[in-house]
């Protein structure tokens, strides 16, 4: 019984840490940081940070302006998603259609844990 509790708490710890990591924002708001998270529409395999296309260069100036206007990181991403679609941001959202994306590995992990639990604890 105690072992099961320890086991479950390990899993909960991991899941909670995930939450913390995703919620926490780095204090520094920079053009570089945001542009690394955006995809270039012209050179579609590169991020806006890496790309030297006209679009990417203009985009970096735009982001700089928005930061100076005082917009938050989330506001900038939302604005761009509204203009160009979710595709432009490398970080998939936590919404219904991406549910399987985020849940699948975690569910698999818990399932694997249960398999091991069975192998080790149940006679």
């Amino acid at each position: 019984m105690i072992r099961l509790i320890k086991f479950i708490s390990l899993i909960l710890f991991l899941i909670l840490s995930l939450q913390k990591l995703s919620n926490a924002n780095n204090n520094s708001l920079s053009v570089d940081k945001i542009s690394k998270n955006l995809r270039c529409l012209i050179c579609q395999g590169q991020s806006v940070y890496d790309s030297q296309s006209d679009f990417a260069i203009s985009m970096k100036i735009l982001i700089d302006n928005k930061i100076k206007e005082g917009k938050s990181e989330k506001q900038i991403y939302d604005y761009l998603k509204n203009q160009y679609g979710e595709w432009i941001v490398y970080d998939p959202e936590f919404n219904k259609k991406n549910l399987i994306l985020w849940a699948f590995p975690l569910i698999l992990f818990i399932f694997g844990g249960l398999l091991i639990y069975r192998k080790v604890f149940i006679n």
């Binding site: 100036i61 735009l62 203009q83 160009y84």
Partner: peptide
Amino acid sequence: PDGIISISLGAYGV
């Protein structure tokens, strides 16, 4: 001149 007006319109190329 910077291309940012076009981006604000949702354009990405010419």
